[in-house]
Design a binder for these strands. Structure first.
Length: 426
RNA sequence: GGAGACGUGGCUGAGUGGUCGAAAGCGCCAGUUUGCUAAAUUGGUGAUGGGGUCAAACCCAUCCGCAGGUUCGAAUCCUGUCGUCUCCGCCA
């Protein structure tokens, strides 16, 4: 969320930003309510100060009569305070409701546009899409051919959109995880295995809506816990409420977790096989940074994503996400879209990673601050996240790009040490 | 799951209804002393919001896990909740 004071002081910029992001929020109404709330707060503090002053005198009262008078005064002042306090609290709730809906400001260089059609291609990977001298299969056909992916079994045990991975594809899945983690550890990330459940307040702080008709999140009945949609949630919640020291920043973490998504409203969207599923595994990067570090760190996360997909010989393009497609928390977002030869009629780009600089939008909600050694006071840290490998989609990209005419799949060299074989499905 | 103990500032740890935002120690910062280092010594040292100031000083409110309650007044009493530890049970 944005700072209330910032919103009031930059009303026009905030309104323009909301328009660019395709978010309709009544910012004027919020400003009005917030000003009213501040007035009430002043009154509350004033009344409380007077009541405190009366209360303090009671201990030193000369006699019982004076004591009783003072008590009565204090009691009345507290009652008045409580009345105004209630009015204040009501306003506060209303302000917060609107405030939560206001998206983060966007990076000045982020392409402005309504939706993903305005996304800007920034570049391509090391590898160009391959020309096949046979009709390439999609990953689902490959999976069925070798009994690697079982959606029927997933539906039987769990429901539509769930699946079993089996056989050599599991080895490939684990190899991708191992490879990514090794790369990230080499680059100073602390490997982490996170809980797959998180408290609703943490989900909200990161920018998800855990409950409600439109939610993407599975929640646990009778508890304030939900299944996480990404390790960004748990890695970002890790330091909720903490004040870090500037010397320990940036903190770079990479987390492995399962990710659960209801995909409510996604019915009908082109999504065959593993592309859009209710559960997948992900290796996620997450960083806490000083404000002056976050832009460079964001570039670094993007570069790591490029390096990872270059290393597994998958063609991709890098996209600078348009304002209307940024979502609430991101200040800027880059996506990698891998070439998926089995997608559509003749192959299509499909999103495989996403990295966002959320500046202080999440940390303000989660109250994660840092303190500079020589200075008084604290500031909110910047948070960033990025996908290393979302295994479901990474598997699609490897299977479809490295398939052979006989249906076997050549394992990219970088993964071979982690798998002990060069080819699967031969 | 059962029984008990405990949650206080960066850390250790006092504090059971009234100048307590909180003793003391450690740490940290500044000064003094000092060939250097170490030691000693003096002072300072929480956060958030608001007011105030050129900037400070200063003033007000809130914060002793969290949320409520009692009271003129709560770190202190009560209820709930979360967490930690110990013992038992169960288990991978």
């Amino acid at each position: 969320m944005l700072d209330r004071k910032y919103i009031l002081e930059n009303l026009d910029a905030v309104k323009t930003n909301c328009a660019n992001r395709n978010v309709s929020v009544d910012v004027d109404r919020m400003a009005e309510l917030e000003n009213a709330r501040r007035e009430k707060l002043k009154q509350v503090e004033e009344l409380n100060a007077r009541a405190n002053a009366e209360s303090k005198k009671i201990g030193k009262a000369a006699d019982d009569a004076e004591r009783e008078t003072l008590k009565e005064n204090a009691r009345q002042l507290r009652e008045q305070k409580n009345t105004v306090q209630a009015e204040h609290d009501e306003l506060d709730v209303q302000v917060r409701e609107i405030q939560l809906a206001v998206p983060n400001m966007a990076h000045p260089d982020a392409p402005i546009g309504e939706d993903d059609k305005s996304n800007l291609e920034l570049g391509r990977g090391k590898h160009e899409p391959r020309t096949f001298d046979f009709k390439p299969l999609d990953h689902l056909e490959l999976g069925e051919k070798h009994d690697w992916i079982d959606f029927e079994g997933g539906a039987r045990t769990t429901g539509a959109g769930f699946y079993f991975l089996k056989g050599d594809l599991v080895l490939l899945d684990l190899a991708l995880q191992q490879f990514a983690i090794n790369q990230l550890v080499d680059r100073g990330f602390v490997p982490t295995i996170t809980p797959d459940l998180a408290q609703d307040s943490i989900l909200e702080g990161i920018g998800f809506m855990p409950r409600g008709p439109e939610t993407q999140i599975y929640s646990i009945e009778n508890m304030n816990l939900s299944l996480i949609g990404t390790a960004e949630i748990t890695l970002g919640g890790l330091y909720a409420g903490k004040t870090l020291s500037d010397e320990e920043l940036p903190i770079k973490l990479c987390g492995i977790s399962h990710c659960y998504r209801t995909e409510a409203g996604a019915a009908g969207r082109a999504s065959r096989g593993l592309y859009r599923v209710h559960q997948f595994t992900k290796v996620e990067m997450f960083a806490y940074a000083l404000p002056e570090q976050s832009d460079a760190l964001h570039e670094e996360l993007k570069q790591i994503e490029c390096d990872l997909f270059d290393a597994i010989d998958v063609p991709y393009r890098v996209v600078d996400t348009a304002t209307g497609d940024l979502g609430g928390p991101a200040y800027r977002k880059y996506d990698l879209e891998a070439w998926m030869p089995g997608r559509g009629d003749a192959g299509e780009w499909g999103e495989v990673t996403s990295t966002s600089n959320c500046t202080d939008y999440q940390s303000r909600r989660l109250n994660i601050r840092f303190k500079q050694k020589e200075k008084k006071g604290t500031q909110f840290v910047h948070t960033l996240n990025g996908t290393a490998f979302a295994l479901s989609r990474a598997l699609i990209s490897v299977l479809e790009n490295h398939q052979q005419a006989d249906g076997s799949v050549v394992i990219p060299e970088a993964l071979r040490p982690h798998m002990g074989r060069d080819v699967i499905g031969a």
